[in-house]
Design a protein around this nucleic acid. Structure first.
Length: 472
RNA sequence: GGUCCCUUCGUCUAUCGGUUAGGACACGUGGUUUUCAUCCAUGAAAGAGGGGUUCGAUUCCCCUAGGGACCGCCA
């Protein structure tokens, strides 16, 4: 393979918000395609909107990509650092007669647009200044690209197929603002050229930009990259996912304890498929990914599916790793679990993770270990006619000094037999007393994880509370 | 309004013109489980509508309807 044929893709977010779930998928697809093709994946930060771009977002995007283990080749390319080159190209275009100065004021154009909108006539800039002769040095101007007026252009999109558009529908778009700063379409085209991008894989919402950028490539005599516009991710309402939607950023998933592997797997399957396969390891996804299998219709986000995907990863990861992630997660998003409980939690991982779909669930399941609280509300739920049974269990356990399952089972079985009750009748109150909740792991597991002393202590606390209640 | 795109179970999707239209998530039922959950089994659930082409159309073409994206001196 010679260097000319190496595939180079890029992800080009603008740091104007946290990494979006759609952006994450775009990044993933670019990354997977480059890996599949043994090419390169570059990161470009499109920070030319000085007002909205923020360093905090840049940091957020970078750390989130790292969290997802979507890594890029070379240093991130900061678009704002290349502005001079963009301006140079604009001047070049201007000099060659491929662009022109437009002196129309923003107010003027705004008014015209409103008028057109009112009359329901499609608005495009009327190219008034296109054939203006002579210099107009004192006035403020923008530079517009001279778009093709006639004919048609076909975009051979790798996902959408051939998309044909009349050239006259592409307006003479601005490439240099009145403050002499380049606009998106110019910067993107120039940067894609300079970065030697071979495949531009991005959201469907950029499709019209492809027609603009292609024209810049043509006039400059540059080799046009391949384009693949992937359908957007829609909200439940079927609209383009926006920052206002719930769970629209990667952070939203991270904070409930979704694994990066699970999120990637979910995102991979959203709009892409490989036969009936649902679970893809990293190696498999790289090996099997292609642009051909990307669907053409937009897809909706399905929270249940993400959670269920995560559940799969929770069940298939080893408990030590799971424990480490739980500790880290708690510290970042909940509260730090005191270290003295680490050993207990770690050895209990196998059942704490049982009904958990995300780390937040495991955290909640583990709470009885590190932040035990028995509220009046929960005590209410205990059938007080079973008090003597609980007391009997307490004294037998204390006497036996044992909390092994076999030992407890023997005690329980005897009581069940003698009192003619079900396990549930004693299991449920015990669970509430020991965990402060009617839901939770199996009673034997709870007992075992707490240890003898803690178990007796919690029962004693309960007895005291009950006695006080009776007195009052 | 203009341009472009899309349309298979509720959701994500499979189907290279001939299938009892398959899988997964969610949901229902039954079983296992000393709660909930897990697990196992099982069920219900889809080709937007109308025309063509064809021996045969979910698949190809056209129309209609519905949905979406874009229409910034944002990216």
């Amino acid at each position: 393979m010679n260097t000319n044929s190496i595939v180079i893709t890029r992800f080009a977010p603008s740091p104007t918000g946290n990494l979006h779930i759609g952006g994450a998928r775009t990044a993933l697809f670019n990354w997977l395609f480059s890996k599949n093709q043994k090419g390169k994946f570059l990161l470009r930060i499109e920070d030319t909107d000085a007002v909205r771009s923020k360093d905090q977002y840049l940091d957020q995007i970078i750390s989130t990509l790292k969290w997802l283990k979507i890594d890029w080749d070379e240093e991130p390319y900061i678009q704002s650092k290349n502005i001079e080159t963009h301006i140079e190209i604009a001047k070049n275009l201007l000099a060659n007669g491929n662009a022109y100065r437009c002196y129309c004021s923003e107010d003027e154009l705004e008014k015209e647009k409103e008028l057109f909108l009112k009359k329901k006539i499609p608005y495009t800039y009327n190219r008034k200044c296109r054939e203006l002769k002579g210099e107009n040095n004192n006035k403020i101007f923008v530079v517009r690209f001279k778009s093709k007026l006639e004919g048609k252009t076909t975009l051979k999109d790798l996902v959408q197929g051939d998309v044909e558009i009349g050239n006259n529908t592409i307006e003479d778009f601005v490439i240099l603002r009145k403050d002499n700063k380049p606009t998106y379409n110019l910067s993107a085209a120039v940067d894609d050229y300079q970065m030697k991008i071979t495949h531009v894989i991005r959201g469907d919402d950029h499709k019209i930009n492809a027609f603009k950028q292609i024209q810049i490539f043509e006039r400059m005599g540059w080799k046009i990259p391949e384009y693949a516009h992937i359908p957007l991710i829609h909200s439940k309402e079927g609209k383009k996912l926006s920052k206002r939607d719930d769970a629209s950023t990667v952070e939203d998933y991270k904070k409930i304890g979704i694994f990066p592997e699970a999120l990637k797997n979910y995102l991979l399957r959203l709009g892409w498929s490989y036969e009936n396969k649902e679970i893809f390891s990293e190696e498999e996804s790289i090996k099997l990914f292609n642009l051909k299998n990307i669907g053409k219709s937009p897809s909706k986000l399905d929270f249940d599916r993400i959670k269920s995907m995560n559940e799969f990863y929770i069940k298939n990861i080893n408990d030590k790793v799971l424990f480490d992630r739980l500790i880290q997660y708690s510290e970042s998003y909940k509260k730090k679990i005191p270290e003295k409980f680490y050993a207990t939690i770690e050895k209990s991982m196998s059942f704490l993770k049982n009904k958990s779909k995300c780390l937040e669930d495991i955290f909640n399941n583990s709470k009885y270990i590190f932040s035990y609280e028995l509220t009046e509300n929960e005590i209410e739920k205990i059938d007080k006619s079973k008090l003597n049974i609980i007391k009997s269990i307490y004294s037998q356990v204390k006497k036996g000094g044992n909390i092994e399952k076999e030992f407890l089972k023997k005690i329980f079985d005897q009581i069940i037999e003698a009192e003619k009750i079900n396990f549930k009748d004693l299991g449920q109150p015990l669970r509430i007393i020991l965990t402060g909740s009617e839901y939770g792991p199996a009673v034997y597991d709870i007992a075992n994880s707490l240890g003898l002393d803690e178990l007796l202590k919690r029962l004693e606390i309960f007895f005291v509370k009950i006695d006080n209640n009776i007195k009052n």
